[in-house]
Amino acid sequence: MILVKKLVYTYPQRKEATVRDISFEMPKGEIFGFLGPSGAGKSTTQKVLTGLLRNYEGQVMVKGKDLKSWNSDYYNHIGVGFELPNHYLKLTALENLQLFASFYDKPTQSLQTWLDRVGLWKDAQVRVENFSKGMKMRLNFIRALMHDPDIIFFDEPTSGLDPVNARILKDIILEQKHLGKTIFITTHNMHDADELCDQVAFIVDGKISLIDAPQNLRLQSGKKLVKVTYRDAQLNASLNTREYAMEGLGNNSDFLELLQTQDITSIHSEEATLEDVFIKTTGKKLT
C-alpha cells in the first residue's frame, strides 16, 4: 500500500537531515507503527507521507503511484490525524466536522455516530474553545476517518487521553484495520505499539534500526524465567524472591517445594517488554 525507499528529509533551515535514509513497506490492511523517543523523526516522516513536507529525497509510492504525482485527490484516499489538536475554537465540534466534511467529494459517514462513539455527542453543540485537550484530540481522531479513507495516519492518537477514552480509540483503530484499512501510527508508548501494530519500526535519530512484529520481538528477547516472591517463615516473614527457568518448571522440585511450604505473595513470568527490546536494540530509552 505504501512503499518508502531511502527516504531522507532535511528541514529547510537545518544542516543535518531529520529523517535519514529510511525504507519500509506497509502492506494493505495492516497497522504499521513507528516507535521511538521524542525527536526521533516520527512526525516528520508522517508529514512527508501525508504530503505536508515536500522536497524530500528518496521514493514514496502510495497505492502504486509516486507520491509526487498524486494531486489533491490524494486526500480523498487518506485521513490524517494530527499530533496536536487543531480546530476552529469559535465553532462547535459539529460545525468543525461539517466544515471539513464539506471538502470531500463523497459524503462522509454519519458525524453523529462518530461523535457518539468517542463520547462527544452530548458536546456536539459546544464551542471547541470550551473543550479539554482530550476532547479536542478525540475530535482530531474523528476528522481523520470520517470520510472513510483507505489509509489512515495517526500521530500519537492516544496521547493526553484518559485510559477509558484511549481504550475506545484503540478499539476503533483495530476495527478500522479489520475493515481493511491500512494504518500508520506513531507512538512512544510501547503498550500501544505492542497491542495495535502488526509491525513496528524502531526509530531513533531519524533512522530505523529494526522492523518486526511485536510478538517476534518479545519472544526473541524473552528471558523465560519465573520470579516468585514469598514470605520466609524462618526469617521473620521478610519478603524473598527466587527465579526459576521456565523450562521443566513442572518437575523443578525446588520450585514445587517452595510453592508447598512458603507463603507465596506473587508469581511473575519475566517476559521482555517491547521497551526492553527497544533499549537492547537501539541503546536508547523510549521516554
Partner: peptide, 9 residues
C-alpha cells in the same frame, strides 16, 4: 496544515 490535507486544489 489541516486545509492542506483536504482534497482542495
Amino acid at each position: 496544515s489541516v486545509m492542506r490535507v483536504m482534497p482542495l486544489a
